[in-house]
């Protein structure tokens, strides 16, 4: 946490809850958050390409735990199933098909790296300042779980059914598009030679 958040630590909520006296859930949340952030940083800095993908798995898995802590259990399982199950596998396949080296590759980062670091740090500073400044007196009531599958399912198939169907069409289109793009055409090899 940055220094901008320090005054918040002393702030006392209406319900008498304080940052200085965190609940158990909050402690677990912060610990998992450290794991998630660490894995994410390793993911974007690792020289081993396959390791980067595995760190991504750790970060996304930790995120699923955070969802659970926020009582959004359905989302958590979906996160585990889709992200860990398919997306990371797809990425690993992508790495293999593009012949990524197994060992450390020294040119994993481009020359844009210092600039990227500066920009990312500036973005982090700005956004953290803004977020902390905006929500320092806001508390989440976790006493009633708000993400159970039945309630979410009802909402999804009543209110959100039309966007849901549109999304299915979009997925189909993406599927077709991916097939069309990645299908090997005869002239590909010739153009590759050119």
């Amino acid at each position: 946490m940055s220094a901008g958040a320090l005054p918040v630590l002393a702030a006392v909520g209406e319900s008498g809850r304080s940052v200085l006296s965190p609940s158990g859930v909050e402690i677990v949340f912060l610990l998992v958050a450290v794991v998630v952030l660490g894995a994410a940083i390793l993911c974007v800095t690792s020289r081993h390409l396959v390791h980067a993908a595995l760190y991504l798995v750790v970060a996304l898995g930790g995120l699923a735990v955070e969802y659970l802590l926020l009582t959004a259990e359905f989302i958590a399982w979906v996160q585990v199933l889709i992200y860990l199950g398919s997306v990371v596998v797809l990425l690993l396949f992508g790495l293999m098909l593009t012949r990524a080296p197994i060992g450390p590759s020294p040119d994993a980062d481009s020359r844009n790296k210092p600039v990227a670091l500066v920009v990312a740090l500036a973005a982090a500073a700005t956004l953290v300042t803004l977020v902390v400044d905006a929500f320092r007196t806001t508390w989440i009531d976790l006493s009633t779980p708000h993400g159970r599958s039945d309630a979410l399912g009802e909402s999804l198939f009543r209110t959100w059914v039309l966007p849901f169907e549109a999304l299915s069409v979009l997925l189909l289109a993406a599927l077709v598009g991916a097939i069309v793009i990645s299908r090997a055409r005869r002239d590909d090899s010739e153009e590759g030679r050119r």
Partner: peptide, 12 residues
């Protein structure tokens, strides 16, 4: 990447 960097910096 350069384009994107400039874009993000400008947004910040």
């Amino acid at each position: 990447q350069t384009y994107l960097t400039v874009l993000v910096a400008a947004v910040i």
